[in-house]
Design a protein around this nucleic acid. Structure first.
Lengths: 108, 108
DNA sequence: CATATTACTCTAGCTGTCAAAGTAATTATT
DNA sequence: AATAATTACTTTGACAGCTAGAGTAATATG
């Protein structure tokens, strides 16, 4: 498991990416992250919902309640046009970050 | 210029790396980071000294005063054995982080 | 009916970043 | 010689993001 404070700053992008693919609810996203990373990263519940709030406040996502569930009622999230644009910027930025960090990680 | 909150979590490693190469003082490290990244990243002064304090508290670096200067007196930092070990771990971790983040950045 | 799982929310605390302001010595400029 | 610019470090206070922990509530399982 990688430390969370090192993923910090990429969380918005990760969540946005999953919602980009299709509308999803919190618990589902949480499981999906664990699945895709082979449990190498698990987002904390409280963190996840904090991300949702932030993204919604910034109008990068919108939410609505679903009608079926296997427990508490599901709040689905949908990416906005703004959110899609923002995600694409983030991907560009990631390439840059990688280059920069690599400078200091290579050659010892 | 990349946002700092996205480099966050890698700062300790970056500083450690530079001190690994040779003993250096704060101002020098600050300039070196700007130089190596072609000004794509500049560490803020207050942040840099906060990093030093943290690393020293964790015994990953040690400090001593230099005798010559072109201004205020220089405090040099030296990496410890523990610091070297920690840096090497960090490099391993970075490979993992890259893989994980890439999962969510590829294919859209 | 008890327990587990699904699903979300809120609060309080911690850590890392950094603007701003300050101290102080050396070097360059006029 | 006085002034400004640069070098060099320190401290404080504020803010943002992550998360443990506790709570609420509905559905599924045995």
């Amino acid at each position: 498991m990688v430390r969370s404070d090192i993923i910090r700053g990429h969380l918005d992008a990760i969540i946005l990416r999953l919602i980009y693919e299709k509308d999803q609810y919190g618990y589902e996203i949480s499981k999906e992250i664990s699945l895709r990373t082979n449990d190498r990263f698990q987002i904390k519940e409280a963190t996840l919902y904090a991300v949702f709030q932030r993204l919604e406040r910034r109008e990068l996502i919108e939410s609505y309640f679903g009608d079926i569930s296997h427990g508490g009622k599901r709040r689905y999230y949908k990416i906005t046009k703004l959110g899609k644009a923002y995600f694409k910027e983030t991907v560009e930025e990631w390439q840059e970050i990688k280059e920069i960090i690599n400078i200091f990680m290579e050659g010892i």
